[in-house]
Design a protein around this nucleic acid. Structure first.
Length: 892
DNA sequence: GATCCGACATGTT
DNA sequence: AACATGTCGGATC
């Protein structure tokens, strides 16, 4: 089986070879992971099912046909139309003339037009031909996916043809161009324009290969910005376009130049049925097609519709549905709900291109139609409805970037159009759409500086306000000075250590303040770190106060949307409300539970905050941070580097020690480090390779941004933080490890090992510490109160070890635990050379190791409650109880 | 002086 | 491309 990289390489080789229309089909078959025998049979013609001259069709895999020069796209159409294609269902259609490639993935409708030489670059497109299906989120609308794909390709092709448009200064112009284009494609399909009016013009006047497309587009767009009859200087054909206005066409009208490839993609995009487009993510499409660098910028992370519904459902839509159910037979009660719809306001303080608002709007309009239809059934006289009672004015947003704010208005406009069309279907009337009016109350500004109540006035009377959205996440290492200032502005008066928090915490804090004591609720998508580790104690006591509580929550889920590269982050959704007797809902993946309480860790448990401690609350040995090199890697040696150094300078051995971080502990590796006492620094530097390393360390540290690192350039022979080392032995606990393991990794090493800061360390501590750390109880505690790296365990001495509740052990009990620890280590050694990672693989853990761990758990748990715990919930309950009792005692 | 975090970083299949 | 799993050093208190 070839892996994708190999396929990429193989395709690249094919692309570099001279094109031979006959051979290509076979080399393509070979490059896409088909056996020699298969290829031979294809060549012999016995398995080739193609009905196109010179074509090669391999069942279910691909259908290739050679094209005459310049006719690749046309040949692709022939492949698409082929009856044999229909029968053999090839995963990929590909036509080429040796210059250009035209290909299609029929299952998704995705197409590819590229130069022949780029075959290898686009290997991912051809993976289906090798039997590897590309993952697609099942819930998304396939038309959106197609449209996004086509627009992304158009976008990339345009930038390639117009390198000068790829600069940051031109990005706005490029995005604006794409917005206008999408607006026109949409409008001509839904009836805002006459059917196909726009694409007819572009393809009539754009030239055969797009050579005049630039001029035609500029003329069309310019016309849309001028009332009819005032279009002097523009060609006569532009007179037919409606006057659009509304800001969209007001700025300078520019267009990039088209080449044959980009023109081809434009045609693909125009051929889509934009009627079916889902405006929920309309704005995001424009943003998701931009390049990956830009995606990291503010607002480039759009929320998928399933995730938006995770927010809006429990926030207010589910409640609305319940009320509708109750009122279903009673016209008066239904009218109350109809009125309620007109009083609900939705406010997204980080609205980006308006996804949340659009989805909320559509959902509300849909419910309105349901009510009106039902009223029509219940009351004999049909409702004489002229207008919707849900107006775009009920939708509020704040967005920092002007472009996204404009897009949000446009997206709301499209949503309104679609909702009205549906409304007209049912009730027979629809208001005029052009020229554009502004849509929604979108404020372009900084949400952290604005007073939210001035953007979205506080609810009065029977108003209800729902705050929803997905603000940006930024850790303390990636914020700009300006963003830090914003954070200070919002939080510094109220919180201590606020700079430790994620940027998103500012939105959560402002949302809590906005809703407190008002007819309002909030629910924001956040990074899961705000409900973990240090953030919990720092932030949540200030949120869950003055009557605010968590009404619902989605626990950690992996971020995913349709963008081509997904952000790597784990999210939570926390719904805040004022104290209420209504049920609380806790969602974990697909599961939902009605619970008595939700605390800041998003657990069904009483509110408790575990704070960092500098010493153990339960008199456990002192656990330290490992030694931190901050050396740019220059004080660290691989086995080979050590060997090379020692073979040249055997006397240098006195300066080299074993060096272990978490990777070394878990995966049984070993590295070495230079470890030189201050008094011998000059001696060490006499060895040229060591001197060079010291110089590199000094250079690296001098160039650092960190105030603590630069002075350390003066002692390059030493770690930036040489914290401590063992006299006899040390217990190493990796600070980050996989969440899959049933027990935390922990290792016992001699005094010859220097631990890096990737471990926490107990120096010269008794063996029973290992029995504690390797227990299920400890894992459960660490998993709950410490932070995580994404979803992996992150061990902390201050938050985890120093707070870990233990009963008062007797000397005898400690001896038993030490013996148990030794049994665990011994059992591991019996499996040497298997590593900790291998031994603790949940699918592959040896039975004897499992057994000694179970014994260890039973032994330890009996010391807590006289019997083993039944499950992790019980373990956690006991631990929190002990912790709470200890903290209470401490405050006396 | 010590440590918590990462809209990740990087190797593997 | 999708997945698994822990580096590394800055920013913060």
């Amino acid at each position: 089986m070839m892996n994708p990289t190999e396929i990429a390489d193989a395709l690249d080789t094919v692309a570099k070879a001279k094109f031979d229309p006959v051979e290509f089909g076979y080399s393509f078959a070979q490059a896409t992971d088909n056996a020699q025998a298969t290829v031979a049979k294809l060549k012999a013609g016995t398995t080739n099912k193609s009905d196109i001259p010179g074509g090669v069709l391999l069942n279910a895999k691909f259908h290739y046909a050679p094209a005459l020069p310049g006719a690749a796209a046309g040949m692709l159409e022939a492949l698409r139309a082929s009856r044999r294609s229909a029968k053999a269902k090839p995963a990929i259609l590909i036509a080429t003339d040796g210059e250009m490639i035209a290909a299609e993935h029929p299952k998704s409708g995705e197409t590819l037009h590229c130069a022949f030489a780029e075959l290898g670059t686009h290997f991912s497109f051809f993976l289906p031909a090798a039997g590897k299906e590309r993952y697609r989120a099942a819930e998304e609308n396939p038309v959106d996916i197609k449209a996004t794909g086509k627009l992304a390709k158009l976008y990339d092709a345009l930038l390639k043809a117009n390198p000068d448009w790829a600069t940051p200064e031109r990005r706005h112009a490029m995005n604006l161009f794409m917005t206008r284009l999408i607006f026109c494609l949409f409008s001509e399909d839904v009836g805002v324009f006459k059917e196909d009016q726009f694409s007819f013009a572009v393809f009539s006047y754009g030239g055969n290969k797009g050579e005049h497309a630039h001029d035609a587009l500029v003329q069309a767009f310019s016309a849309m910005n001028l009332p009819k009859g005032q279009r002097e200087g523009l060609p006569a054909w532009t007179e037919k376009f409606e006057y659009v206005n509304g800001g969209l066409f007001a700025d300078a009208i520019e267009a990039p130049a088209f080449d044959p490839i980009s023109f081809r993609y434009l045609r693909d995009a125009a051929e889509l049925d934009w009627k079916l487009i889902n405006p929920d993510i309309f704005g995001s499409m424009i943003q998701s097609i931009a390049d990956s660098k830009a995606r990291a910028e503010l607002g480039m992370h759009y929320t998928s519709v399933p995730n938006i519904m995770k927010v809006l459902g429990p926030l207010f839509l589910d409640d609305l549905d319940e009320a509708l159910d109750k009122a279903w037979e009673k016209p008066a009660a239904l009218k109350v709900q109809l009125h309620r719809l007109s009083r609900i306001r939705v406010f997204d303080p980080a609205c980006g291109s308006g996804n949340f608002l659009v989805v909320a709007y559509r959902q509300m309009r849909e419910r309105e139609i349901r009510i009106l239809t039902r009223l029509g059934e219940l009351e004999d006289n049909p409702q004489n409805v002229m207008f919707s009672s849900v107006s775009l004015n009920q939708f509020y947003g704040i967005e920092l970037t002007d472009f996204a704010a404009e897009t949000a208005k446009l997206a709301l406009f499209i949503a309104e159009y679609q909702a009205n069309a549906r409304f007209a279907d049912v009730f027979g009337r629809m208001p005029a759409l052009l020229p554009l009016r502004d849509g929604g109350q979108i404020k372009c500004g900084n949400a952290l500086r604005l007073n939210w109540a001035e953007v979205c006035p506080a609810p009065v009377g029977d108003d209800e306000v729902y705050i929803a959205g997905n603000p940006p996440f930024l850790g303390d290492n990636s914020r700009t000075d300006e963003q830090n200032d914003d954070m200070d502005f919002v939080l510094s008066e109220h919180l201590e250590a606020h700079r430790r928090l994620d940027f998103v915490a500012c939105w959560v804090f402002k949302a809590a303040n906005y809703i407190r004591g008002r007819a309002a609720k909030s629910a924001l998508v956040s990074t899961n770190s705000i409900c973990q580790g240090q953030s919990v104690g720092a932030l949540w006591p200030h949120l869950l106060t003055g009557g605010v509580e968590i009404g619902f929550a989605h626990t950690s889920f992996k971020w995913r949307n349709n963008a081509s590269a997904n952000a790597a982050v784990i999210c939570v959704i926390v719904g805040l409300r004022n104290t209420s007797k209504d049920k609380k809902r806790l969602f974990q993946g697909e599961m939902e539970a009605g619970v008595a309480n939700i605390n800041a860790y998003l657990l069904d448990a009483p509110i408790i905050y575990v704070h960092a401690e500098s010493r153990s609350l339960f008199e456990l040995p002192y656990m330290e941070y490992g030694n931190k090199p901050t050396d740019g890697g220059h004080l660290i040696l691989s086995g080979e580097e050590r060997h090379a150094l020692l073979s040249d300078y055997p006397e240098a051995g006195q300066f080299i020690k074993k060096f272990m971080g978490s990777d070394e502990v878990c995966n049984g590796r070993l590295r070495y480090c230079l470890w030189v006492p201050d008094s011998l620094a000059e001696d060490a530097a006499r060895f040229p390779p060591i001197r060079t390393r010291f110089e590199q360390v000094a250079a690296f540290r001098s160039a650092s941004k960190a105030a603590q690192t630069r002075p350390a350039a003066a002692y390059p022979h030493r770690f930036r933080q040489a914290q401590n080392w063992a006299k006899e032995h040390a217990i190493l606990i990796p600070r980050v490890t996989s969440e899959r393991r049933p027990y935390l990794p922990v290792d016992f090493v001699g005094a010859d090992v220097i631990s890096s800061d990737l471990n926490n360390v107990l120096y010269d501590a008794p063996d029973w510490c290992i029995a504690l750390i390797a227990s299920r109880l400890h894992l459960v505690w660490i998993a709950t109160v410490c932070g995580k790296l994404k979803s992996d365990f992150r061990y902390s001495n201050t938050l985890g070890w120093n707070t870990f509740p233990v009963p008062k052990f007797t000397a005898d009990q400690l001896e038993q635990l030490s013996a148990s620890a030794r049994r665990i280590l011994k059992t591991r050694y019996q499996h040497y050379p298997e590593t900790i990672a291998e031994l603790y693989d949940p699918d592959d853990m040896p039975d004897d190791l499992r057994a000694v761990h179970r014994e260890n758990d039973e032994l330890l748990e009996c010391m807590y409650v006289g019997r083993p715990f039944r499950n992790d919930t019980e373990r956690l309950e006991k631990l929190f109880k002990l912790y709470a009792a200890r903290v209470k005692q401490g405050t006396k």
